[in-house]
Computed example of a mutant assay.
Amino acid sequence: MIIPKNREEIELMRESALVVSKTLGMLAKEVKPGVTTLYLDQLAEEFIRAQGAIPAFLGLYDFPNTLCMSPNSQVVHGIPNNTPLVEGDIISIDCGALKNEFYGDHAYTFAVGEIDPETKKLLDITKESLYVGIREFKLGNRVGDVGYAIQQFTEKHGYGVVRELVGHGIGRKMHEDPEMPNYGRRGRGKKFVEGMALAIEPMTNMGTHKIRFHKDGWTVTTLDNKPSAHFEHDVALIDGKPELLSTFQYIYEALGIESDEENEFRQQPLVL
């Protein structure tokens, strides 16, 4: 069942999403060769709690850490450990926070130092596919319209779209209806309604779309061991149009990147 939110609830959700955004921005300065994912996880837990929020992933479905840290061929749900990152790695960081009884949840794939052009293109196309999908989150459309747009854009570039893992509704629960696949058919699935909120999150593989689930119950890797990228935003449907609740601007500020990619999805300018 889809649970629409009123304007007050959406603003509370924005606060939760921005806790995550700020956390990812803080981590952007720390992602470098020699750093361990467990160290980044500890930084994130302290930072989230300092903002008056609770790490949403810690203990959720018995997950053992604050962050899902998925390097290189890991798709999602990687468990932080003491293995140092090395030059040329990529690392997908998925983060969640609970504040004011609402969840925020989004993700970004970082380059560790300099990465090869082929891998950089994977990151760029995956992030762009996120916005391609968000544009279809509008009144009158359906779940399949978002998935179709992401799939067509991604496969046009020769990449694999993960089937078994999907985005989701979000609110007072981390995972609400509807499920949001990154593939689909136009006009299919549940219809979007005013006030609903989603976590839209393309997961794109450089090679095959097929994946492998590991025995630890969490780690997911590409079947061919080629790199995978993951980007995610929280979005609400306001006045029939998508409104970003999360932002990558804290990341860009930390990395010295200028970008206006989010402007079309904001009714009011974001003040950092």
Results as ranks from 00 to 15, higher is better:
residue 256 G to Q: 04
residue 259 S to R: 01
residue 232 E to N: 12
residue 241 K to W: 07
residue 214 H to L: 15
residue 252 Y to G: 08
residue 242 P to N: 12
residue 222 T to W: 05
residue 237 L to K: 11
residue 249 Q to I: 13
residue 218 W to C: 11
residue 233 H to I: 09
residue 218 W to P: 01
residue 235 V to M: 07
residue 249 Q to L: 14
residue 246 S to Q: 08
residue 256 G to L: 02
residue 224 D to E: 11
residue 238 I to Q: 00
residue 243 E to K: 09
residue 238 I to V: 15
residue 259 S to L: 09
residue 224 D to F: 13
residue 251 I to N: 01
residue 219 T to N: 08
residue 221 T to K: 04
residue 263 N to E: 15
residue 247 T to W: 10
residue 230 H to R: 12
residue 241 K to C: 08
residue 223 L to T: 05
residue 255 L to T: 00
residue 249 Q to D: 15
residue 252 Y to L: 07
residue 251 I to E: 04
residue 245 L to P: 01
residue 232 E to F: 08
residue 226 K to R: 14
residue 250 Y to D: 12
residue 226 K to N: 13
residue 214 H to C: 10
residue 227 P to K: 07
residue 238 I to F: 01
residue 235 V to L: 09
residue 260 D to S: 13
residue 225 N to L: 14
residue 253 E to G: 02
residue 247 T to E: 03
residue 253 E to D: 13
residue 261 E to G: 06
residue 255 L to Q: 07
residue 221 T to E: 08
residue 237 L to C: 05
residue 252 Y to S: 03
residue 242 P to I: 01
residue 238 I to E: 06
residue 232 E to A: 15
residue 252 Y to V: 03
residue 258 E to G: 06
residue 263 N to K: 15
residue 222 T to N: 11
residue 251 I to F: 00
residue 255 L to F: 09
residue 248 F to G: 05
residue 231 F to G: 07
residue 215 K to T: 12
residue 249 Q to F: 12
residue 237 L to F: 04
residue 259 S to K: 00
residue 229 A to C: 10
residue 248 F to I: 08
residue 217 G to K: 10
residue 225 N to T: 02
residue 223 L to S: 10
residue 260 D to M: 09
residue 252 Y to C: 08
residue 262 E to C: 04
residue 260 D to N: 13
residue 242 P to W: 06
residue 264 E to I: 07
residue 227 P to I: 02
residue 240 G to I: 10
residue 233 H to L: 04
residue 226 K to I: 01
residue 220 V to Y: 06
residue 220 V to R: 07
residue 224 D to V: 07
residue 258 E to F: 09
residue 228 S to P: 01
residue 241 K to L: 14
residue 259 S to N: 03
residue 227 P to E: 12
residue 214 H to R: 13
residue 224 D to R: 11
residue 227 P to A: 09
residue 219 T to S: 14
residue 245 L to W: 01
residue 227 P to W: 07
residue 250 Y to S: 10
residue 234 D to S: 14
residue 257 I to Y: 06
residue 221 T to Q: 00
residue 250 Y to G: 00
residue 260 D to C: 11
residue 249 Q to N: 15
residue 247 T to R: 02
residue 261 E to V: 10
residue 214 H to K: 11
residue 241 K to I: 07
residue 254 A to W: 02
residue 248 F to L: 10
residue 233 H to E: 15
residue 226 K to Y: 11
residue 223 L to H: 12
residue 221 T to G: 13
residue 219 T to W: 05
residue 257 I to F: 03
residue 219 T to K: 09
residue 244 L to C: 00
residue 237 L to D: 09
residue 240 G to C: 02
residue 218 W to A: 03
residue 255 L to M: 12
residue 252 Y to K: 05
residue 230 H to E: 05
residue 261 E to R: 12
residue 258 E to H: 11
residue 228 S to N: 12
residue 222 T to V: 06
residue 232 E to H: 04
residue 216 D to Y: 06
residue 258 E to S: 14
residue 250 Y to Q: 14
residue 251 I to K: 00
residue 246 S to W: 02
residue 230 H to Q: 05
